[in-house]
Nucleic acid binder design. Sequence first.
DNA 1: CTGAAAGCGCTTACAG
DNA 2: CTGAAAGCGCTTACAG
Lengths: 349, 349
Amino acid sequence: MIRQPPLGKTLMPRGSTPPNAITILHVAAEAGVSKSTVSLVLKNSPLIPEETSQRVREAARKIGYVYNRRAAEMRLKSSNTIGVVINDLMNPFFAEVLIGIERKLVEAGYIVFMAHTNENLELQEKVLLSMREQNAAGIVLCPAFGTPNSLPKMVKAWGIPLTVIVRTLGAGSYDFAGSDNERGVYLATKHLIDAGHKRIGFLGGRAGVTLQQRIAGYRTALTESAIAFDPALVLSANPNRQGGHYTMCALLDIRPRVSAAVAYNDIVAFGALSALGERGLRAGKDFALMGFDNVLDAAHSNPPLSTVDIRPNELGEHAAAILLARIAEPNRARQTYLAAPDLVLRQSV
Amino acid sequence: MIRQPPLGKTLMPRGSTPPNAITILHVAAEAGVSKSTVSLVLKNSPLIPEETSQRVREAARKIGYVYNRRAAEMRLKSSNTIGVVINDLMNPFFAEVLIGIERKLVEAGYIVFMAHTNENLELQEKVLLSMREQNAAGIVLCPAFGTPNSLPKMVKAWGIPLTVIVRTLGAGSYDFAGSDNERGVYLATKHLIDAGHKRIGFLGGRAGVTLQQRIAGYRTALTESAIAFDPALVLSANPNRQGGHYTMCALLDIRPRVSAAVAYNDIVAFGALSALGERGLRAGKDFALMGFDNVLDAAHSNPPLSTVDIRPNELGEHAAAILLARIAEPNRARQTYLAAPDLVLRQSV
DNA sequence: CTGAAAGCGCTTACAG
DNA sequence: CTGAAAGCGCTTACAG
C-alpha cells in the first residue's frame, strides 16, 4: 500500500506562526550567563548551583521565554509525539479506546497526533506518512478494513515502534492489543442457550478477521450444545446502527421464529433494539439480545443492554502501555494484550 | 489559570527514535548535485530543470530518503500542526465535532494534536502549554467547565490563533463556533406546546452559559404561550446518560403529571428514554421527549429521538475553517459561526 | 562551575 | 541553473 518514499510535498506546510522570538540567548543575556548555562538550568542539571539556577529562571519568566521543544528534539533526534490512527470514531467503542490511549500517553509526557481514517485506506496511508515525516516516536493503529498484513513490517522498517489494536493483521510479529473475540461471543451465545433459546441469530459485522473470530465463538457455543449452525441466521451488514436495525428487521421475519441474537457489537445491538421497538417488541421480554464491547451507552440504552464487557478504556491504556514499553526497549519480545471478556447482564435478555 | 511561562520541563521528552540517518546531503551526493538543489526539487521549485529534478527524485527514492518536516519547520519558523482540545469525548456530540474538525484540517494539509481534558482544568492547562511548546500553528478549544474568560486573551498573547467552540467564554473578541442554543430549545419547546403539552420539563445540564441559553429558550417558548415557568420542572444534573436517567425518574414522580420534556442534549435524552422504558412507558406514546444536537445515535435510539439538529460534523468543519482563515489572515475581523437549529421529528414525540 | 564551538536537517538569499 | 554559507533554537562534549 505505501510504496514510495514520501517526498517533501506529501503534505504542504501552511500557517507560519512567528512563535516566540525569545530564545535561550535572550535569557542568557538577561541573566548574565552563557546560553549553555541556561540550557542546563532548563533541564535541571545538578551542575548548576541553586543561586544561578534561580536567577536564570527568574530571567526566563521575566522576559516571557517559551521553551522550543521542537528545536530541542531536532538537536536530540528525539520525539515527544505519538501518532494514534483510528478507523471509526463514530463508534463510541473506538472513542473510548482512544480516550484510554490518550490519557495514558499524556500521563507519560507525550502528546498525541490523532487521525481518523474513517475506514479509508488512502487516507490511512496519507496520515501514516505524515506521522513519519513528523518524526513520531511511535504509532498506535487501529487498521482500516483492507489494510494489508504487510503494514506492520513496513512501519517497522521505518524504525517507528507500532502497536496495532482491535483488528489483527495476520500472523506477523507485531505488538497487539485487542480482545478475545471468540471467547466473548462464545460466552454470550452460551448464556442465551442456557436461558433456553434454540434459534439464535448473529447480527451485523463486516467481513474480516474480527467477524470470523466472533462467528467462530458463536458456532462453538452452538455446536457444544448440539444446536445445528444455520447460516441463514447469521446476517451481516456494516457494523453500525443502521446495520443493526436492518439485520434485526430481517431476522424477525425469519420463520420459524428466532427468539434471541448476539450482535457483532454494541452499536449494532442498539440498532437492533430500535428495530425491536418499532415492532412493538421489547428486548428482555419478547426477545433476548446480547451486545459486545460494553460501551458506556450500554448501561443506559432502552432497555439497558446485556453485553460482553471488554473494557474499552482499559484496552486503550494497555495499547499505550505496550507501545511505551516497546519505545523504551525496542528489542523486547512481542507483546500482546487480549482483553478477557466478561458477561455483563442487564435487561436485554 | 495559566500564569507562569512554561519552562522546559513542563513535559518531559521521552522516546528517542533515531529516525532516518538519511538527509538531503545523502540525496545530493547520490544525485551528484548540491543540497540546495535537492531542497529546491523537494519544493517543486521551477528553478530546477525537469531532468535534474527527475534525477534527484530518483536518488531520493533509491536511498530511502524521508523528508524531515520538523527540521524544515524549524528553519522556516512555521508549523504544520494544529491542536484540538476537547472537554468530553465520551459524549458522541463532541466526537462528531472532532471528526469534522480533523477532517477539514487534514484536508488543508495539517496534522492534529488531539487532547481530551475530561472537564479537568489542570489537564487543560497542561495540554495547552504543551501545544504551545510544540509550536502549534493554531488551537481549537472546547473549554472545560470553569475555564476563565481570560483564556482567549492569554492564548492570543502567545501569538497562537484560537477558535473556541461550543461553549462561549464571555464577551471578549475571540473566534467562535457553536450553535444557537436559545433558539434551538425554543423551537423544541414550542413544538411540544403546539402539540398540546402544558406541563413540560427541562432535563439535565450543568451550570454554565450553555445551560442558561438553553433554559432561556425554554422559558421564552413557555412565556410566549402564556404558560407559567415552573422552576420545579427544570431538573439539572450532569449532562450525560445517568443524568438523563436520574432526572427523568424524578420528573415522572412530580404531580400533577408532566407529559413532555426537552432534554439538555441527546445523551441526556437517551438516559431519559431508558428511564421511561424501565417504567413501562414509551416516548412518543406515553410521553413526549425532545433532545438537542442530533447525534448519529438519535436516528436509531429506541424509539428514534426527535431532536434539535445542529449538525455536529458541520459545526466542526466550520470551526476548522474559521481557524484556517484566522491563520491565513491574523488581523481579520472576529469570526463567528452559530449553527441554525432545525427540528428533526422522529418518534419520541 | 561556565563559555566557545559544533551540529541536528533543513531553507534561503547570494554569488557564480 | 547550481554551490557555498549562514542560520532556525537548541544540546553536548570539551576546555578552562
